[in-house]
């Protein structure tokens, strides 16, 4: 396993601390007066999403983490497991409900997502920023009401509930931003 010395530290580095993978999301080089160089880092745990503040001294080092991003296709859900396939190797990967977090809301069969692997094992998933979902059920829309500030919950094909403007009807296709979980626009009626 490669190691990174403090002189290699930079934003975007993937490192391992206590056996867990971290992404260096901030790195500040500070040097007080006549003092020793300090490397102040913010590190995001790639398994849990928590952020760690760590300070390193010049000459310290961190182990690199074997982290890679691959494109996968969503196949199906089996109880608490979501099954994906690597588009290049056809290898299958499973993520638990905990690992998938809120992203189950956007998964449609065949959808291509980006998956993060740590030591070859899947740890997290990023769906495309925008997905189009069919409305399965909602209270009927008010005809002619095109106001977007009055919202109602609608149930989409994945089973998730999304807050939408009141003019949305069953059978509509809506676009949702997966980063915020919010309605973007109506794609078709």
């Amino acid at each position: 396993m490669a190691t990174y010395k403090t002189s290699d530290f930079r934003k975007g580095l993937k490192v391992q601390i206590d056996g867990e993978p971290y992404l260096m999301i901030e790195m500040n080089f500070v040097k007080p007066g006549k003092g020793n160089a300090l490397y102040k880092c913010k590190l995001r745990n790639l398994l849990r999403g928590t952020v760690l503040d760590r300070t390193y001294k010049g000459g310290d080092s961190l182990e690199s983490a074997d982290v890679e991003e691959i494109d996968v296709q969503y196949l199906y859900r089996q109880a608490d497991l979501f099954v994906f396939m690597d588009n290049k190797t056809f290898e299958q990967y499973e993520l638990s409900t905990e690992q998938i977090e809120d992203n189950w809301k956007y998964l449609k069969e065949g959808m291509v997502c980006s998956m993060t692997l740590f030591n070859g094992n899947p740890i997290s998933l990023s769906p495309p920023n925008h997905v189009e979902l069919k409305v399965e059920y909602c209270e009927p829309g008010v005809k002619g009401d095109t106001a977007t500030n009055v919202t109602k919950p609608v149930k989409v094909e994945t089973g998730a509930e999304i807050l939408c403007p009141s003019f949305i009807n069953m059978g509509n296709i809506i676009k949702v931003d997966t980063r915020t979980g919010t309605y973007v626009e109506r794609v078709s009626t």
Partner: peptide, 13 residues
């Protein structure tokens, strides 16, 4: 945030 390598006797540190 105290670096792992900070030694107790390193007063200036």
């Amino acid at each position: 945030a105290i670096p792992d390598g900070q030694e107790l006797q390193d007063r200036d540190g």
